[in-house]
Design a protein around this nucleic acid. Structure first.
Length: 428
RNA sequence: GGAGAAAUGGCAGAGUGGUCGAUUGCGGCAGUCUUGAAAACUGUUGUACCGUCAGGUACCGGGGGUUCGAAUCCCUCUUUCUCCGCCA
């Protein structure tokens, strides 16, 4: 959520910035200003009443000590009215506070200047493109056919045991997953990230902390008996480590990496986009999360983008980096780069990573702060990115690396796979 | 799952109804001393909100209550520890 004082101070700038996200903010901002004025007045009056009550209480105490019981009892009468007005003002203050928060929570994060104008994905800015499209054999197949042919992934079995969108990986398919996870984690560790293995289930407070709740409640699997949620990304537990935490400036930047399964209900998405591995309810992902000072966050965003690029490059997949436009960028993000790999048999660009700087938007909600060099406690900046999401990478590898009689394995994975080629003759 | 104990400032740890925002120690910061450092000594040291200032208000795990007045009493929730049971 945005910071109240910033909204009050720079209301025109906030309204203008949010217009880029096609969000009409002026009504809400006006309402916030009005509510806040009322809140300040109420607070002043409440404080006066409390001060008066405290004063009387002290006098009564003094009288009791002096043994003047009658005078003390007489004074008690005075407090009844004060107590009542105090309670009224207090209730009013709480209500106003609540209403203000409710308004602020409706406001998306302000996009940074680099975010291009635009309505939808077509207006995103391609900032980088790398790698050549592969020459596929004449009998090239989409990955779901290849997965079946070489016994790598069993979608039907997933349907039987759980439901659509929960595939089984087996044999070399399972090994490929494990190889990718290891490759991604090792690469991050080599860049100084600390590896975490988080819980896959979080409580309600954590869901609020990273903003999944209350808006995206329907997108998460909910264990109602214990009021737990299955995580849609490791971002949720990893970022919530720092909920209500005050860090030291010398702790920053914090660089965490976590592999986790991710669970998404994906309510409402059907059709050809969900074919095969393109969209699943449960999938694996390695996520990087960084916490930085306010000054360094954009430098760190660039570093994260470079790290993700090195992963895709290492796998030899053609990819492009797009800077999301105002209409396509998420509610919480100030600047986002998406990575798309080209999946040659489907002839489609598949989104495999999304790297974002949230500036202080998440930190404000999390109450994640640090003491800066002047000793002042200020909000930290948070960033995260997929590095990387597995299923679409697997899809692209299967499709792009297929030959007439098998699937080659990218060199960086061969050691973890224990083979360099999957074929009819060696399939498991 | 059952029984009991506890939760206080950066940390340790007092405080069981009124000058307690909280004794004290450690740590931190500033100073004295010293060529420098250490030690010793002296002072200082939480956060948020309201107010132009003076100042005021709130905060002793969270929430509610009793009282003129709550860190202190009551209820409730959470967490931690000890014991018992169960178990990978």
């Amino acid at each position: 959520m945005l910071v109240l004082n910033e909204i009050l101070k720079n209301k025109d700038a906030v309204v203008k910035a949010l217009a880029k996200k096609h969000f009409k903010a002026d009504d809400i901002v006006e309402k916030i200003i009005e509510l806040d004025k009322d809140r300040r007045e109420t607070k002043s009056r409440l404080d006066e009443v409390l001060a008066e009550s405290n004063k009387i209480a002290k006098e009564i105490g003094a009288l009791y000590k002096a043994g003047k019981k009658d005078e003390a009892d007489a004074m008690k009468v005075k407090t009844a009215q004060l107590k009542e007005t105090g309670k009224e003002l207090n209730d009013k203050f709480d209500l106003l506070q609540e209403q203000i928060t409710k308004c602020i929570v409706e406001l998306p994060n302000t996009p940074c200047e680099l975010v291009p104008e635009g309505k939808n994905a077509e207006d995103n800015l391609i900032v980088h493109r790398e790698g050549d499209f592969p020459q596929l054999p004449a009998n090239a197949l989409p990955h779901w056919e290849l997965a079946k042919k070489y016994n790598l992934i069993d979608f039907e079995l997933g349907n039987k045991v759980t439901g659509a969108g929960f595939p089984f990986y087996r044999g070399y398919g399972a090994r490929l997953q494990r190889a990718l996870i290891t490759y991604f984690l090792n690469s991050a560790i080599n860049r100084g990230f600390i590896e975490y293995q988080p819980p896959l289930v979080v409580n309600e407070a954590s869901g609020f902390g990273t903003g999944q709740l209350p808006d995206k409640e329907g997108q998460m699997y909910h264990c109602t008996v214990d009021n737990f949620y299955l995580i849609p990304t490791a971002e949720v537990p990893i970022t919530n480590i720092y909920r209500d935490v005050i860090l030291k400036q010398e702790d920053l930047p914090i660089k965490n990496v976590a592999y986790s399964s991710c669970f998404r209900r994906e309510a409402g998405s059907y059709g050809k986009d969900v074919r095969g591995l393109n969209r699943l309810h449960e999938f694996d992902k390695v996520e990087i999360v960084e916490i930085s000072t306010q000054e360094d966050s954009y430098k760190i965003l660039d570093e994260m983008v470079e790290h993700v690029a090195s992963l895709v490059r290492g796998l030899g997949l053609p990819f492009r980096i797009v800077r999301l436009c105002g209409g396509d960028i998420s509610f919480t993000s100030a600047l986002t780069y998406d990575f798309e790999v080209y999946s040659a048999a489907q002839e489609k660009w598949l989104e495999v990573s999304s790297v974002s700087n949230f500036e202080s938007f998440q930190a404000n909600r999390l109450k994640l702060r640090y003491k800066n060099s002047e000793g002042k406690t200020v909000l930290a900046h948070t960033l995260n990115g997929s590095a990387l999401a597995l299923p679409r990478i697997v899809a692209a590898i299967l499709e792009n690396y297929q030959t007439e009689d098998g699937i080659r394995i990218p060199e960086v994975l061969q050691h973890f796979m224990g083979c360099d080629f999957i074929s009819e003759s060696n399939k498991i």
